[in-house]
């Protein structure tokens, strides 16, 4: 083991007068599920947006290191390269499937780059020469394998927008996984799921970690999910990292409890002194 998979160094993001993320540093270790938690407005999604290239951070460095030692500075890559080269995939709080395309096509779009190269930038694909047909078949097989894992194989040809909410959530994760990521970033994957679907999600995320060897970074409000599946928890509050450690440590951390539950007035000063605010 060399460098951690993802390493944030002194990340800050400023929107005008608002410092949404203030000097946050943490690591995401290879082969682990890391949860990023915090009260509303803590800057969790902003951190995600910096990692996946939506925002260019005001200050700081985001380094992603592949297993072979190749290092990418994500804040310097154009957004589509973050997926193509650095192999980071993400989902959003709201569902952003391609609603008008079929379930299968959503998974094929995620395999765009290898397929585009195999089709000779479309020319060979139209002529049906080269290895394109075989490559396309492999892509379909991979998509179907994922559909089997998420239990949607019989709906492959339906428009993605027709699926029920929980299925759309899982399809989004499958689509992100079809890009062969080393790091999967999930923004509130359990939001709006019922308890049974939440359990299925936990199983899916564990299999992503154990079977595919993909590390996961997730934002989640559902503490049952966080405590159940994560190996490592990072807590943000008002853009500042207030805790970082194993789930059990976090559960009992007074600063975290204070951030979530609020504190008596006389305790505020004491906590603030401790946080360094």
């Amino acid at each position: 083991m060399t460098a951690p998979l993802l390493s944030l160094h002194h990340l800050s993001m400023r929107f005008g007068g608002l410092l949404a993320v203030n000097d946050v540093s943490f690591d995401v270790r290879r082969g682990e599920i890391t949860a990023l938690i915090g009260p509303n407005g803590a800057g969790k999604t902003t951190v995600f947006n910096c990692i996946t290239g939506f925002y260019k951070p005001t200050e700081g460095m985001i380094a992603l290191t592949h297993e072979d030692g190749t290092r990418f500075l994500l804040e310097r890559l154009p957004d589509y390269r973050i997926n193509e080269k650095a192999r980071v995939a993400r989902t959003f709080q709201n569902i952003r499937l391609f609603q008008g395309m079929t379930v299968l096509e959503n998974l094929l779009v995620a395999q765009h780059n290898p397929l585009m190269a195999a089709s000779g930038w479309t020319v060979l694909g139209v002529l049906g020469i080269g290895g394109y047909r075989r490559r396309e078949q492999e892509a379909v097989d991979k998509a179907v394998a994922w559909l089997e894992r998420i239990g949607l194989v019989d709906r492959a040809d339906d428009p993605a927008g027709d699926l029920p909410y929980g299925d759309q959530r899982r399809l989004e994760i499958a689509r992100a996984m079809c890009t062969d990521p080393v790091l999967l970033c999930l923004d509130e994957p359990a939001a709006g799921l019922n308890p049974r679907e939440s359990l299925e999600l936990n199983a899916l995320l564990r299999s992503v970690r154990d079977r595919d060897g993909t590390s996961v970074l997730l934002i989640e409000h559902d503490m049952s999910v966080v405590m159940e599946i994560s190996d490592h928890v990072v807590v943000l509050d008002y853009g500042i990292k207030i805790a970082d450690g194993a789930p059990d440590e976090i559960r009992n951390d007074p600063k975290v409890i204070a951030a979530y539950l609020g504190v008596e007035d006389e305790e505020v000063a004491a906590v603030e002194a401790e946080v360094g605010a």
Binding site: T52, G53, F54, D79, Y80, I82, N83, E84, A89, R90, F92, R96, F98, Q99, G100, M101, E105, L108, V109, A110, H112, N113, M116, R175, A176, T179
Partner: peptide, 19 residues
Amino acid sequence: RAQRACEQDQKMASLLGIN
């Protein structure tokens, strides 16, 4: 497929590695 994806959601398409 990339064209249809970009038509629906360009940001999401770029996050899936589409230029």
